[in-house]
Structure formats: C-alpha cells, structure tokens
Computed example of a mutant assay.
Amino acid sequence: MINEATLNQASAAAQFALLLWPGNDLHEFVQNMEDIINNPNSSVFLAFDDEKPVGFAQCQLRFDYVEGTQSSPVGYLEGLYVEESYRRQHFAQHLVQACEQWAKTKGCSEFASDCELSNVDSLNVHLKLGFTEANRIICFTKKL
C-alpha cells in the first residue's frame, strides 16, 4: 500500500531519507520532511507492508530547466528508498507511480530524476522504472 505522508509520518520518512543520504542529522530531516509535506509543490509517499513503513519517495515540482525536458513545471523524483528485504517486490515502482500521478494532478506532462554517474544500482532501477537516460554531466566548482 502507498500513501501520501502526513505530518505524523514525517519521522518515518526522515528515517528512510537518512538511509538514502547517510551522514545527515535525523532531526533536520524530520523538519525537512515536515516542510515538504506542508509545501503544495512537493510531496512524500510511504510504502507499507501491512502497517509497517518499508520505503519512501520524495518528489517535487521543478520550475527551472530540467535536463532532457521541454515543459515546466516538471515533476521530479528527489529521493527513493525501499528497505533491502522489500526490494524486487514492486514497492519502488508503486512509489514512483504515486509520485507521477501526483505530478500529473499538478499539471505536469513530464517526470524526471537523476543519480550519480557511479551509482549503477540507481541507474538500473531508474531504467527498470521506465526512465530514459537524458544526458550525463560532470559538475565543477571553484572557490573564489
């Protein structure tokens, strides 16, 4: 079962976010999830096995240019995580479909995502979920 997260579920979503992006602060992630849940241009979905949360997806609208797209806004998958023991059971697929449906209700005709060049597992999941690779880039920074 997939549900759009409520404020009462922000902590559960934050715990999955911490697994996806380790090294961050759980308290900050809880606040971040609350902000996302309260924002009409973003959403968090939770996957459940009975009543146990087993994964999450975070999505939002992006109004700036999104690589490979031709419209605005674009629905954007910001994060996706499913507990290892629940993978390959279509939870990720259902989470992404919920995000895509949410984006459609916001007027989007395109949906996008990204992953690091070295993250082959994420690349493979994206391809299995129906995404098409749009481009590969390397970003640079310089201290001034």
Rank of each mutant, 00 (worst) to 15 (best):
L95F: 07
A92C: 01
V74L: 01
G23L: 03
L26E: 04
P53M: 11
V96M: 08
V30C: 08
L129W: 10
Q70T: 15
D64K: 10
G107T: 04
Y76H: 14
F91I: 01
W102G: 07
M33I: 00
F56W: 00
Y81F: 15
L123E: 12
Q89C: 06
H126K: 11
E84T: 14
K143A: 12
L127T: 12
Q60Y: 10
M1S: 13
N3P: 00
K106S: 10
I137M: 09
N41Q: 13
F131T: 01
Q70A: 05
Q89A: 11
E67L: 10
V125C: 14
T6I: 03
D35I: 04
S71F: 10
E83Y: 07
P53R: 13
A98I: 06
C115V: 04
H94G: 02
T105R: 12
L20I: 11
N24G: 10
Y65H: 12
T69I: 09
A92F: 02
R136D: 00
Q93R: 14
N24Y: 10
N39P: 00
N24S: 05
T132S: 14
L46A: 07
P53N: 05
Q60H: 11
Y81M: 15
Q31W: 05
N32S: 14
S109L: 01
H126N: 12
S118H: 12
S85K: 15
K143S: 07
L117F: 01
L18M: 08
L144C: 06
N135C: 11
I37E: 02
A98E: 11
L127P: 02
R136K: 15
N41I: 02
E83D: 15
E28M: 04
I37F: 13
Q97A: 14
N8Q: 11
L144A: 13
D121T: 13
L19K: 15
N24T: 06
L95Y: 05
N38V: 00
E4D: 02
A47C: 05
L18T: 02
L77F: 12
A13W: 08
D49L: 08
E28T: 09
N3T: 11
E100K: 03
P22S: 04
G55K: 09
L129G: 09
N124Q: 14
F29K: 14
P40A: 12
F29E: 11
A5C: 14
E67R: 02
Q70I: 09
V120M: 04
D64P: 00
G107Q: 05
Q89I: 02
S118A: 13
T105P: 00
R136N: 10
N41S: 14
E4Y: 10
L61N: 04
Q93Y: 08
E28G: 08
R62P: 00
T141R: 08
